[in-house]
């Protein structure tokens, strides 16, 4: 077991060249529809349509932020992108795998393969409480892609160093702050080297003073050219790292464009009222 190799692992994918419009998208959803069934049977309980035909295509190395009010379908949309949530209709495709096509989904093994290429970071971190930080990061490698425990730990250690947690490898999640937990979660997501990472409100559960350290890791990841889709309420951050901003409203994409277009010159009145509420830029 060589000890030196541990330092060489890069977080996520290597920096990719600037996206060209003609390239095959890294991840793509087309005409997604999703309706939640009524909470209970009976009068007054109606099915809730959440996604009404949203399409999004993200190029390799592109950073796309999805913004919108709560209840606009942002989380459902991003959860459909790695099929944690099954759409009712539409197409979900990433890294050349069509995982969902109008009700037809890939089989179990295909789904596992698909999800390995599409990482996700959750609002609530969802670290495994019975495992140390290093084991949280190495579990996907040992039980998913069959690395030996020590090889996986070596990679986990270098991942944790990269997110600034070299001294927390043996800590359990309950011993870590929210910001530290989320950084472990990011390292865990990158452990199996996904081509795309989805972030579902990665800073929304954090105390304000801990938001910065997590955003710093996201910035670094963006700088390395990782393909990222981010659902966020941090509009300033979204403007800073995103190539494109998508404004979701009532289960539909109301407007999308560069941060400049969307925040300074929104054309849709709904976007205007949303953006002005935040008073960004």
């Amino acid at each position: 077991m060589s000890g030196e190799g541990a330092g060489e692992v890069t977080i996520g994918a290597p920096a990719s060249p600037a996206a060209t419009p003609s390239a095959l998208p890294a991840i793509e959803v087309r005409e997604l529809y999703k309706t939640y069934p009524p909470q209970r049977r009976g009068r007054g309980f109606e099915p809730t349509p959440v996604l009404k035909g949203v399409s999004l295509s993200v190029q390799n190395g592109e950073h796309v932020s999805i913004i919108g009010r709560s209840g606009s379908g942002k989380s459902t949309m991003i959860r459909c992108m790695n099929l944690l949530e099954m759409p009712d209709a539409g197409v979900v495709r990433a890294n050349g795998i069509t995982a969902f096509d109008d009700g037809l989904k890939v089989n179990g093994r295909g789904l596992v393969e698909f999800r390995r290429g599409v990482g996700m970071v959750f609002q609530q971190f969802n670290l495994f409480p019975h495992l140390t930080a290093a084991e949280n990061v190495s579990l996907p490698m040992t039980k998913g892609i069959g690395l030996s425990r020590l090889d996986a730990l070596a990679r986990a250690a270098s991942m944790l160093r990269k997110v600034g947690l070299a001294d927390k490898m043996g800590s359990f999640p309950h011993e870590l702050s929210g910001g530290q937990q989320q950084r472990v979660a990011i390292a865990r997501t990158l452990a199996v080297q996904p081509k795309v990472v989805l972030f579902d409100e990665p800073t929304s559960a954090l105390d304000p003073e801990l938001v910065g350290e997590v955003l710093e890791v996201l910035r670094e990841l963006a700088g390395e050219g990782m393909t990222m889709v981010i659902v966020t309420h941090e509009l300033a951050f979204a403007a800073e790292v995103s190539h494109r901003i998508v404004f979701l409203d009532g289960g539909e994409i109301a407007e999308q464009g560069t941060p400049d277009q969307l925040f300074r010159n929104p054309t849709n009145p709904r976007t205007q009222s949303f953006v002005s509420q935040f008073g960004t830029k």
Binding site: V112, R116, G119, M120, Q124, N126, F128, L139, G144
Partner: peptide, 12 residues
């Protein structure tokens, strides 16, 4: 969320 985290990192 524990199940989801497991599935999301590509575990069977």
């Amino acid at each position: 969320g524990q199940r989801e985290a497991g599935y999301a990192v590509g575990l069977s």
